[in-house]
Design a protein around this nucleic acid. Sequence first.
DNA 1: GTAAACACGTGAGAC
DNA 2: TGTCTCACGTGTTTA
Lengths: 232, 232
Amino acid sequence: MQPEISDQIFYSFLTGGLCASSTSSTTTSLFSPFAIEDKVDEDKALASLRNHKEAERKRRERINFHLNKLRNLLSCNSKTDKATLLAKVVQRVKELKQQTLEITDETLPSETDEISVLNFEDCSNDDGRRIIFKVSFCCEDRPDLLQDLMETLKYLQMETLFADMTTVGGRTRNVLVVAADKEHHGVQSVNFLQNALKSLLERSSKSVMMGHGGGGEERLKRRRALDHIIMV
Amino acid sequence: MQPEISDQIFYSFLTGGLCASSTSSTTTSLFSPFAIEDKVDEDKALASLRNHKEAERKRRERINFHLNKLRNLLSCNSKTDKATLLAKVVQRVKELKQQTLEITDETLPSETDEISVLNFEDCSNDDGRRIIFKVSFCCEDRPDLLQDLMETLKYLQMETLFADMTTVGGRTRNVLVVAADKEHHGVQSVNFLQNALKSLLERSSKSVMMGHGGGGEERLKRRRALDHIIMV
DNA sequence: GTAAACACGTGAGAC
DNA sequence: TGTCTCACGTGTTTA
């Protein structure tokens, strides 16, 4: 909203911006019987304005303090202007969020068991003679897990092309790209793979149950112990 | 800086905040020979001030636009005030940075080979009868790496207490906590472990060199291929 | 009634 | 020169 005329006069009046003669000429109150009352009101208003001014200064300081912190975090020059800085912060937060999401969702083991089998038929680059599957599962780790997995794939007559395997704190995530000959396999082999993995994971949870009798609790204890030792 | 008296008058004058009579009374220029010149200057100043006002409005808009973006990213209420919001942003950026650093530094394989052996003697909790080591190394993956590692530890008469193993895109990072009996081991066993790991990694690089004849390049090609397939 | 937060218009300084 | 950014003091609104 545009400041009104009265606001401008009020502003000049209260801030004492105008010189004494000007003030006395505009305020005829000195000769009125309400002169003292007016003076008190004037003082009150002045004090209020001073407080307001100070509070606003503090507020600006607070904001700029955090802006400077962000400047340091993004190793930005102190000459980077506020808008640009904030744009960079937005971008950085987005990047970091995406990065951690990718790692925790696609690489690190999750807390819950998962199985995923995808068909990459269109993606095969050996003249379409083979079907390519991307297999991914997440479960409790156990000593014979990998051996069982290899035997399962061998039994299904599938060849492992790539394998990313992550075992952290007793849980494991494995992402494999496997190839299957079209002589023996079709798209329906996705189901074979899925069922095979399911029984693999069932064996996992059984072995954990029998081995410790605590399951998740025991694992958490183990993880904490490991974290402790590593952190020292 | 405090606005001066003249500034206030100038402000009221230019913005046309004061009524006509007031304006004519403060400016004696209407009767001077420079009236037209003054009028031109007046228009110029007015236009300049209008531009300035508009530019400043745009600037505020830009800043607030990004602030609102940050509000969304942190799922903050629109009533969260600027200073608090920025404080939260600072905290969030710090958290995310720390989180990704932890994962990439302590869990995911690095691009360069690394060996680290630490002694945790003080940390042993079995009456000090055993020495605890934290072993961590990072290198190219190869089929027999884990088997070689286990044989090495067996040869050194060490028992694996915990193991975090991550293999991604052809590189592997392994973090193990191993225990060694004090009958056969002392703090100097750190060196045994280090040397053993060194020869393990040398075998790794040899096998990669022989196997592919490209080394790092070949690995990057593999990794890119895997990324591609997974991303589809 | 007062305390806090915001948008606004302005002057000053950088470039 | 003009253009851009900032800090400031103010009026207004909300709790």
